[in-house]
Nucleic acid binder design. Structure first.
Lengths: 239, 239
DNA sequence: ATTTGTCTATGACGGTGATCATATTCCGGT
DNA sequence: ACCGGAATATGATCACCGTCATAGACAAAT
């Protein structure tokens, strides 16, 4: 159980060239010239987080713009009563917080490393003035936020009209497209994506196993019939 | 039943001064100087829509930035199977589409006038270059989008952990804060906000009526005990 | 005045899935 | 090597709520 402040991340040095390479693969910066990329890369510094480490916590004011350089980060939102949904699974090149840098105010999300992870930070104000100077960045951010809103609304509709099993299929197919055949997630993590309980996820997975669509072991699921999966889950999420 | 293109809205003239006044009350433009407000107001023109009229329809590419000048507009998203959730109830000063102008691409939302309504339009490109020139606008937009994302995620969690009645309480309290004691909405419209069916909404309303929290008539609900309502629905939505 | 459609209202039914409980397996830490 | 915690697995229960059906009230239209 990762207590707040338990794993704050250790500063770590990564090459300027490596940071440039990272930002060239970051969608938010797509459309920028090399010089601009270098400018923002020059302001960035990195931290390393162990599995389970907390990159930021809900209700903390936003100080940095974060981009994952290596590893995998789960961004999730948790209710008072304890239910939690994960909202983004960010790997290399994906930012963790697009809104925070603009408002500075805390939001109800927290970010946790799902494996050994390196996250690159840029000071909020630096990122802000850089974004404002470079319109492309703004447009990219707004279009990503638009997708996020669409996705969230889609999930609401799915909660209304789709049974657990179909939501899980959608989750699995989305993850398959992003991470490939072998998905290193626990049933609990999948449940947080599908908006259901661990038990229901386990039961649904049992059925999918019987139908030969997946195999599963402790902390991992393998897609054996992607084509069938695709067929069954017509749409995908944005995760 | 409003068929596509049935009510496209009639061009209508409204004073320059009136447009300026509108934009001064539009949160997206908060922080702008008078001259800037006048500049964007100069580019705006208005249309009138009858009750039930369609301001824009899903899958249409975005051509304009829209702001409600008078009346009330329901922005909603509809699934293939027909379930629909309403995502925004916009009255005077509220924009209908913040993302569209930046991407230009169609999104899965549609906007319908709930009463006699006047909507002010600005050409997408005009609005875009204006926003980019004026950083405050960008920051305002991004912070609104952030709220929208938070709200949508909150609704997902509510779908998981709150029963219909509590979701309805939240909807009613939110509407009460925005529109006052008398809410001119049908049970079906409330259902689309609470993420449930018309029948379940009607049943829940019956219970609230028995508890003396509301009274209701055809197409309208009145809040008789706001304090109790507030107490029961600890949080509010962003609608 | 009659009709038509929308909105409200309520009953009956049945399934889904959350909750609680228990058992077993697997992995990591000491 | 042992122990403890986490993850998987599965059963039993039951309330919520979606679906279908029916009926009446009200408003607007012809």
């Amino acid at each position: 159980m990762s207590l707040q402040g338990a794993n704050l991340g250790k500063p770590i040095n990564i090459d300027f060239a490596e940071r440039v390479d990272l930002f060239k693969n970051t969608f938010v910066f797509e459309g920028l010239g090399d010089d601009d990329i270098k400018e923002i890369a020059g302001m960035a510094f990195a931290k390393r987080f162990a599995k389970g480490g907390s990159i930021f916590y809900q209700d903390e004011p936003c100080e940095f713009f974060h981009v994952v350089a290596r590893g995998l980060v789960k961004v999730s939102i948790c209710s008072f009563s304890g239910s939690r949904i994960t909202y983004l699974l960010a790997d290399r090149g994906e930012p963790l917080n697009l809104v925070g840098p603009f408002t500075g105010s805390p939001r109800f999300i927290s970010a946790e490393a799902l494996e050994e992870t390196i996250v690159v930070h840029v000071n909020r104000e630096d990122f802000l003035s850089f974004a404002i100077k470079n319109h492309v960045v703004i447009i990219n951010i707004i279009s990503i936020l638009g997708s996020a809103i669409d996705s969230a609304n889609g999930r609401i509709i799915d909660m209304i009209e789709k049974p657990v099993e179909q939501r899980l299929l959608k989750v699995l197919y989305t993850l398959y497209e992003k991470f490939g055949n072998t998905l290193k997630f626990t049933s609990n993590e999948l449940a947080e994506l599908a908006g259901t309980t661990t038990e229901s996820t386990l039961r649904a997975m049992g059925r999918l196993r019987k139908r030969g669509i997946i195999t599963s072991g402790r902390g991992e699921v393998s897609i054996t019939r992607p084509a069938k999966l695709k067929l069954l889950s017509d749409e995908t999420l944005w995760v």
